[in-house]
Amino acid sequence: MNPTASLDQQPLLDIANLTVTFPSEHGPVRAVRGVNLRLRGGESLAILGESGSGKSVTGKAALGLIGSRVRLTGSIRFEGDEIVGADENRLRALRGRGIAMVFQDSLDSLNPVYTVGSQLEEILRVRMGRSRSDARREAIALLEQVGITSPETRLHHYPHQFSGGMRQRVCIAMAIALRPRVLIADEPTTALDVTVQAGILRLLKRLQRETGMALIFVTHDLNVARLVADRVAVMYAGRVVETGPIDEVYRRPAHPYSRALMHSHPSAATSWSELHPIPGNGPSKSVVVAGCSFHPRCPVATERCASEDPPMLAVEPGRSSACHYAEEVLRGER
């Protein structure tokens, strides 16, 4: 059963068997180990995972934002064009217009010595060929679109003159300046207070409605993912272990890790004694576990799990899980 078979539409972004390997003192570290993901136009997908899951690396790889010493295998196709192995020119053409990205730390994403306006206008002039005055007009409109009041004045301010939340709005304005088809947001609200976060999340949803762009939202926060996304890909130790419509995955997880993650979350409990930690520690970067990488912490693992790495298989239309016992887990029988 192919979850997307019913859709004739070619996926906007098609990531197939992606692996990302970093060199390190202790030998190569495989941060992403065979990830398959498909994103359709206008869709919003959350990549949910804890530290070491490879969620951020997956997001960055889709933009070719991976250093030259890093080895990428597999395939990332954007509208049918291959990104893996593409040269800098092709990547540059893709970034911004095809796929754009917003990062967690907005201070690192902006140049401190130029005003916000000049950075926005530069993108519009260089990449869109706008005239000076058109670029100015469009920059003002973009700042307005991301909820910055008095944009004519704010244009002349430097990044440090903005609060964290406002700076993230500026980064979003820069990311959407070239009208990308896909926006990848990598933990964009993690550094922000909740009241600021709520505004940014609402902004992203509104922009998605207004522009029809697809959204990949990389996060560790189950509740933020639920608010933002239609579909979720749960990652663990460099692999996607479960995908599906987010409400269904949360209601009836088909992978023991997804289920354990939800049971460990405070919002699922009514008293601390109902908090169920996942035993053991998170996945190690350097040690590759034989079989399923979750099996050492998995409450329902068997001997088979220690030797045989489970493939990602459909469990229901639109839902897949990489667990030997996915169907039993889904039905709550295991």
Partner: peptide, 14 residues
């Protein structure tokens, strides 16, 4: 986010 049902509603901007 744990207590919110949806992102409906206005983003107040700055």
């Amino acid at each position: 986010p744990a207590l919110m049902d949806s992102l409906d509603g206005d983003d107040p901007g700055d």
